[in-house]
Design a protein around this nucleic acid. Structure first.
Length: 425
RNA sequence: GUGGCUGUAGCUCAAUGGCAGAGCAUCGCACUGUGGAUGCGAGGGUUGUGGGUUCAACCCCCAUCAGCCACCCCA
């Protein structure tokens, strides 16, 4: 055991059980995305570093991307995010696409981070965007998708809230305090950190970036005003529409939500686990110029991204992940001994031909062992062809759930098996 | 990148610097045509790795790797 080469730091292995959970999550994301008419797409998993150098933020590329030189000497990165690949894909066909584009994706990403809870170096991310419009209806739709995802997963509004703010509203309020440009950026940072520092440290940070006492007081008033959204026509419209769509209960106004990325220019939002030790599980917002940075004409859009690691932790925490029963629709055909082996082989083949998932035990060992194997896999139908059955062309089918068994002709047995696995699947 | 905690059997964890153990799991038998139970027995270890201190190290010291947690950052 000790000689096994370790897996790469921050990676995960998906044993069949974890793989089943991953596929379940994928299915949930697919169902939610497509119910709003979004199409699945994907970009390359590797990209030239230049793609990200253009925008993306220095830190993401320089410190968080996996970069390597290929044999031709180009610097290649394992994609740390999808946004720029998406932007290029849009730009390349900018005049052919039918707008608004509604696209979603679920795929792997890599970031060279220090692994900890909810954070790995290799992870999956759900990205979903509507591109080419700039309207409260579009903003509301993305929020509704987010809320619908949680509802589909079985998460209640008490468990997860989508916290919403608007960049323009905040900019306007800060401008009233005489905060603009560079100071505005720093003040956004300040707001972003409020929950992470105690008040005196936070105030010190405010002084540090150059806020006056009056401005600091003003910022505090903004942050304490939960009704501030009523000064934003866009947010008023969005909340009204969410009400009509029946998902208003999942969404709350919160002036603390700012988000780190510079390119957000309108609505911004994060979904938070409201329970103990809650964290953000997804984030997104409205951007004004997605495509311009990769050489297209500016196009507005709105979208969000959700990592699978935090999402899975959240769904597990609230008991939303269904019990996975991998073999409840599968029958095990035992091998009694060498003499009946051929009949077992043949019978298994017949079952498969009739569309029944069939496992054949691969050696003639004690039936006890074969039954135990079936039990541990979760198989609930077991077929036995011993000397008696073999002579008469029969097979015995045992139902492990109710412990009953029937002996019938091999011809008719498929129907018996079908009933057992169907009733229990 | 910074700081803290933790690495002992497959898993969960014990073991004053003095013989490395338990429970669960696994395998075998009781039980030669039938799974979840019970009893008995067995196997399984370079104590993460590499150095150091010591007559003697799972234990103390240094380094390193990994996991967890908090920063940083971010979806």
């Amino acid at each position: 055991m000790k000689n096994i080469i370790q897996s790469v730091k921050g990676t995960r292995e998906f044993y069949p059980h974890e793989m089943a959970v991953r596929r379940w999550l994928y299915a949930l994301i697919e169902k939610t995305s497509e119910s709003f008419g979004y199409q699945e797409y994907d970009g390359p998993f590797i990209e030239k570093i230049d793609l990200y150098a253009a925008k993306s933020g220095e830190e993401l590329v320089k410190e968080q991307a996996f970069v390597f030189a290929d044999r031709g000497g180009d610097l290649i990165t394992l994609r740390p995010e999808l946004t720029l690949s998406l932007a290029r894909m849009i730009a390349q066909k900018q005049n052919e696409l039918t707008y608004p584009v509604r696209w979603w994706s679920f795929g792997p990403f890599w970031r060279y981070e220090k692994p900890q809870k909810g954070r790995t170096r290799e992870f999956f991310q759900w990205n979903i965007d509507m591109i080419g419009v700039d309207s409260p209806v579009a903003d509301a739709e993305l929020l509704a998708i987010c809320a619908t995802f949680f509802r589909n997963a079985g998460i209640s509004p008490e468990q997860v809230s989508i916290l919403v703010n608007h960049r323009q509203l905040m900019e306007k309020k800060l401008l009233e305090l005489g905060i603009a440009d560079d100071l505005k950026k720093k003040t956004f940072q300040l707001i972003d950190r409020k929950d992470k520092l105690d008040f005196s440290a936070w105030k010190a940070f405010a002084t540090d970036i150059g806020l006056s006492n009056d401005q600091f007081t003003g910022v505090n008033e903004i942050l304490n005003n939960r009704e501030l959204w009523q000064q934003s026509p866009e947010l008023i419209a969005v909340f009204n529409q969410l009400e009509i769509m029946g998902v208003r209960e999942y969404v709350k106004y919160d002036p603390h939500i700012i988000r780190g990325l510079d390119y957000y220019s309108g609505i911004v939002f994060e979904a938070w686990d409201m329970g103990k030790d809650g964290r953000a599980v997804l984030g997104g917002g409205h951007y004004g110029n997605l495509v311009a940075d990769v050489g297209g004409s500016p196009l507005p859009g709105v979208g969000f991204a959700m990592g699978d690691v935090m999402a899975t932790i959240l769904l597990e925490k609230y008991g939303c992940i269904p019990e996975i029963k991998p073999f409840h629709d599968t029958v095990l055909v035992t091998i009694f001994d060498e003499n009946t082996l051929q009949q077992s082989l043949g019978f298994a083949a017949v079952l498969r031909k009739k569309g029944i998932k069939t496992i054949l035990y691969p050696e003639a060992v004690k039936l006890q062992k074969q039954f135990k194997f079936a039990d541990r896999l979760g198989v609930i139908a077991v077929a036995v062809i011993g000397p008696d059955e073999a002579l008469a062309g029969n097979v015995t089918i045992k139902n492990l759930t109710d412990h009953t068994q029937i002996t019938c002709s091999q011809e008719l047995a498929a129907e018996t098996v079908r009933q057992i696995v169907k009733i229990n699947s």
